[in-house]
Design a protein around this nucleic acid. Structure first.
Lengths: 203, 203
DNA sequence: CCACCAGCCTAAAGCATTTAGGCAAATAGG
DNA sequence: CCTATTTGCCTAAATGCTTTAGGCTGGTGG
């Protein structure tokens, strides 16, 4: 007999459902109550599987971080330089557009403990691998990782917020030009600021 | 005689208090209830001054956007090229570090109507002014605005989230190098890509 | 067979939002 | 100056999410 009296909630299924819910209603809409409704179970029942709301969101975040790192690693296989840069950027961007809730989840601020054991470090690793292809190492590599991370995240964040919606040219074109620009920049990474003299005011 | 029976709440004072509260407890912590406590008034009383919670946050966002645009405009006065770029970026970054709640407020997604009449367009205007100094116009200018906006916002967002906290070199150094890099890039903005189309990223 | 435990439940408290309706102080008009 | 209206704040109450405490039950191991 199929048990009707047990709903079969587990932490894993909560996370899975939470991930899907996030993409439907936004990461902020992922609530213990909403998940209880989805499992047709009373709210307090979930507290035996998950410590609290924060814990739930953390798990969803870890899931998204890992999934995204997997996709990034897959996209980077066999690529280097410009191809690799564009591939990774496109993975992030496509993930954010396909799964906005998961992308938002991946950006949840984790406590240092959790962050260290998350897939976060794998993301940095992917970027560093790309930069080796540009012969960037040491401090320059760190700066470049931060630039790329900032630009990827910033662009995706603004695009997702609709910042580029009602203006020409369309966002796809800007994205491609920005990838070009980053590639050009990395191929010719400026040395320590020699403090170029202020540009002459041309007549 | 000082009236003891009227607390003297107005929409303006609510916004002002909300702005300060945002910097203290984060923009998400700005709640009608918290403001009522701050004014020592019952919660429903605020609903005669503000339509609802969303309305309150929108007003705070508009305040922050305008304040930030004012600072940007002031910083740009008399500057061009690299100096202007760094000045504007630093205004954003300093504002975010001084007033994290206001910065978060400024990033609230407004409906198109409100956005159009906000100080948002002034921000784009500032960036376009800088790019004229780099001889960037037309579509290239739009792409560059988006790049700069993305990089500024992305860097500040990651820095604020503590993403650069526990690693060398420190964030200030990266910021300076990234400003250098952006300046170099704008001085030598790449023409339309003649590269072979980017390889398809795994389906 | 039975005792335990895992999985779900009800009850209840805390806090935020929001609407409805009331009273009294401030103010404007005659 | 006095009244009538408006304004500012109030109580009451519904809704929704979080979280803790404690109880019932059915499947499982001894």
């Amino acid at each position: 007999m199929v048990s009707v009296v047990r709903a079969g909630v587990t932490a894993e299924r909560l996370v899975q459902a939470g991930v899907e819910l996030a993409d439907e209603v936004g990461f902020d809409g992922v609530t213990v109550s909403a998940l209880a409704r989805r499992f047709d179970v009373k709210v307090p029942s979930l507290y035996s599987h998950v410590r609290n709301s924060r814990d739930l969101k953390t798990r969803i975040s870890l899931y998204a971080l890992a999934e995204l790192a997997d996709r990034g690693a897959a996209a980077l296989a066999g690529r280097a330089g410009r191809d690799a840069l564009i591939a990774l950027g496109t993975v992030y961007r496509d993930y954010a557009r396909e799964h906005p809730g998961r992308y938002a989840a991946a950006r949840l601020r984790l406590d240092p403990q959790t962050a260290a054991s998350s897939a976060g470090p794998r993301h940095s690793q992917l970027m560093r691998a790309i930069l080796l292809g540009y012969r960037l190492e040491g401090a320059d590599q760190v700066h470049a990782v931060r630039l790329i991370g900032s630009t990827f995240h910033g662009y995706i964040s603004l695009e997702l917020a609709g910042g580029f919606d009602h203006s020409e040219p369309d966002s796809q074109e800007s994205w491609e030009r920005i990838m070009d620009a980053l590639d050009a920049l990395l191929r010719n990474w400026p040395a320590l600021s020699t403090h170029t003299p202020p540009p002459e005011v041309a007549s």
